[in-house]
């Protein structure tokens, strides 16, 4: 409730000013001017507020109750056991007993599209509060594509994300993933090329573990698209470059072995034809 008390007036003001800025000539379009106006008014508090909203989305995913699990469930397909916590808590005194009954506890997940969509307003609010919160775009894109089955909305959201965070390769990679799910290889390739260029331009591309992982994934996707286009040599080169960067190597190793085999077969076929 504490966070909600703080959040409501701030959210209302943010939304109000956001709407106002949208209607002021010259600020229309949601670009830098609007961002500056909000930035001047709220400063770094916006970032904290935006992250609180993403946390709130996670809280909603758990039916409004924090169960102590700290993993990023909002952003993955795996679900943990729902029956591992008692619903009424440990009742000791009258006070604890009554609190245990009044306030829900335990571990519950939103299931089904009807309920899962309830996290969406908080992702929207997180982005409205801070358009530079990259995680909010990524969570929103995942949620809209995988859970809400609205990839077109996810693409619009990511386009806004790229517009507001032009040097962040993760957003281009997320856009490519959505395009791949729509079987739009051309658009996916364009986004992956953008992502690759931004990743290579990063000073910490090879040092930061998260950055290495992102770069590795971009290269794997580029390899897959090259393979689909019949360019086995380029695919193998991409997989080879991705292999040391990526954490879970098995699939990439298999893909690399497959493409190298295909290359060898093609080379030997070519030699035998020449012979």
């Amino acid at each position: 409730m504490k966070s909600a008390i703080l959040a409501i007036p701030l959210l209302a003001t943010t939304v109000g000013i956001g709407q106002f800025a949208h209607h002021v000539p010259g600020l229309n379009g949601g670009g830098c001017e609007q961002d500056d106006l909000l930035g001047q008014l709220f400063g770094s508090g916006r970032k904290a507020l935006s992250h609180r909203f993403v946390d709130r989305a996670d809280l909603y995913f758990h039916g409004g109750v924090h169960d102590g699990h700290q993993h990023e469930e909002l952003f993955c397909d795996e679900e943990h056991d729902d029956d591992d916590a008692p619903l009424d808590g440990g009742a000791k005194s009258f006070w604890a007993w009554l609190n245990g009954h009044i306030h829900p506890s335990g571990n519950a997940h939103l299931k089904g599209e009807r309920y899962e969509k309830e996290v969406i307003p908080w992702i929207w609010a997180a982005i409205a509060a801070d358009p530079h919160n990259v995680d909010a775009y990524l969570v929103g894109s995942y949620w809209l594509t995988r859970r809400m089955h609205k990839p077109e909305e996810a693409l619009k959201l990511l386009a806004r994300g790229v517009e507001n965070n032009s040097d962040v390769c993760e957003l281009d990679m997320a856009r490519a993933e959505v395009c791949l799910s729509l079987k739009d290889d051309g658009a996916a390739l364009d986004s992956l090329r953008d992502a690759e260029a931004k990743w290579r331009a990063r000073p910490d591309a090879m040092d930061d573990p998260r950055s290495r992982e992102v770069g590795g994934r971009v290269l794997v996707y580029l390899g897959i698209l090259a393979e689909r286009a019949g360019d086995t040599a380029q695919a193998a080169a991409r997989y080879r470059e991705a292999l040391p960067l990526i954490r879970v190597k098995e699939r990439v190793k298999r893909r690399l072995a497959h493409t190298e085999n295909a290359l060898r077969t093609r080379t030997s076929d070519g030699l035998s034809e020449q012979g």
Binding site: K117, I120, P121, W122, W124, M148, K150
Partner: peptide, 21 residues
């Protein structure tokens, strides 16, 4: 009322945030 009329990625029937506020 303004919060209830916000377009949330074209998804309809979202109520919990309104209930909370």
């Amino acid at each position: 009322v303004p919060l209830a009329s916000v377009n949330l990625f074209g998804i309809e029937g979202i109520v919990r945030y309104l209930r909370e506020i």
